[in-house]
Design a protein around this nucleic acid. Sequence first.
DNA 1: CTCAGAATGATAATCGTTGTCAACTCGGTG
DNA 2: CACCGAGTTGACAACGATTATCATTCTGAG
Lengths: 137, 137
Amino acid sequence: MTTGRASRRPTRQQQAVADILGQSADFASAQALHGRLREAGETVGLATVYRALQAMADAGQVDVLRTDDGEAVYRACEPGHHHHLVCRTCGRTVEVEGPAVETWTDRVAAEHGFIDVTHTLEIFGTCADCARGASAS
Amino acid sequence: MTTGRASRRPTRQQQAVADILGQSADFASAQALHGRLREAGETVGLATVYRALQAMADAGQVDVLRTDDGEAVYRACEPGHHHHLVCRTCGRTVEVEGPAVETWTDRVAAEHGFIDVTHTLEIFGTCADCARGASAS
DNA sequence: CTCAGAATGATAATCGTTGTCAACTCGGTG
DNA sequence: CACCGAGTTGACAACGATTATCATTCTGAG
């Protein structure tokens, strides 16, 4: 059978989006990424940025989460399941793993008769630098 | 001393929103709640529903979370910190507690020097009823 | 080189949510 | 009880993020 690759035909624009994502260590919104691409001289339409991000999200190549005000933010992440520890001041992001959490969610879900279980877990806080230098000029 | 009550002046509309929330066992969007109020014969403006929900959310009287497509959904919940196990088919919601998870997130955050930590955790799955009857035409 | 189909991009459309502002209500006062 | 000031309401406009549309362009294969 055909390989599982649901990837679209490779194009310069998709490559550009993937590159910009790879350069950023933190989560960024689709519009922010689009803006950065324009600054970098890349000519990519906003709609294309959205499509590329969706495609990569579907393929599991990027993580997506929603800010409190409902905006979607994206980030290129290590493959595999993990969670994020995000500084709410500077946006710094740390990927964390928690086998215990995975086990716990599965067990709780099973206890209630749920199957085909997934979960989302994000941790927000203030990182050491921001806590210390919050008053920095 | 002035109580911490940031609550607004009590009105019929706010009561109506609180009531409708109390009757629903599952998460519902602001617009869905507004629709239900109209069906119930209550005359409440959509903007007022949003304001009432925000006020209750600020007061910690309701839980808010975002669906995958960014829509905010609300539910009247037990006070205190807890998480949700939601059936992605029928929407049934179970409140769950996980002291172990709380501990884990705090520890992980501390290890990375983060302070003032909060977290969000939601579990999605298919409940027993939906799993069984999923093949229904 | 040429073709078919997929991808792009500018724009319009959609949807949820928030802001605006005149009219209204509440609760207390004289 | 009538009145008052401030907080609320509600209809509608405004807004921002995302998605759909559709003619044009590009990719890879033959």
